[in-house]
């Protein structure tokens, strides 16, 4: 019994300390090709008065830096998953 407990402890502690890279190599699954989602780089954003096709009740991810307000509709981010943006001179990544 004592040996079993010790073995269990060793297994549990080795899992807890497992290196995340080893875990990654074991568990990661390629589900779509690399850049299968069209990731955005410095996308040109539309001024609010010219923006069409966004529903009033649609959720948007919003960010403001030094008065520069930018919105990313979740419905559109679902297509890209990632956007590399600059907001108020701050380089940011929006992910969905």
């Amino acid at each position: 019994m004592r040996i079993r407990c010790l073995l269990l402890f060793l297994v549990v502690s080795s899992v807890a300390n497992a290196d995340i890279e080893e875990e990654y190599d074991r568990l990661a699954r390629q589900v779509v090709p690399r850049d299968g989602f069209p990731v955005l780089f410095d996308p040109v954003l539309t001024p609010v008065d010219k923006a069409k096709g966004i529903g009033e009740k649609e959720p948007v991810i919003g960010v403001v830096v030094d008065g520069d307000a930018q919105a990313f509709p979740i419905s559109i981010m679902g297509r890209h998953e990632l956007a590399n943006i600059v907001c108020g001179k701050k380089p940011l990544t929006v992910s969905w």
């Binding site: 609010v48 009740k57 959720p59 991810i61 919003g62 919105a71 419905s75 559109i76 297509r79």
Partner: peptide, 26 residues
């Protein structure tokens, strides 16, 4: 980095000079 989720209507109201990502949806 701090961000938030709001309806487009509320966001525009809070930030009338906002810019927005447009294009095809997912």
């Amino acid at each position: 980095f701090p961000s938030r989720v709001m309806t487009w209507a509320d966001w525009k109201k809070q930030y009338p000079k906002t810019k927005v990502l447009t294009g095809p949806k997912g």
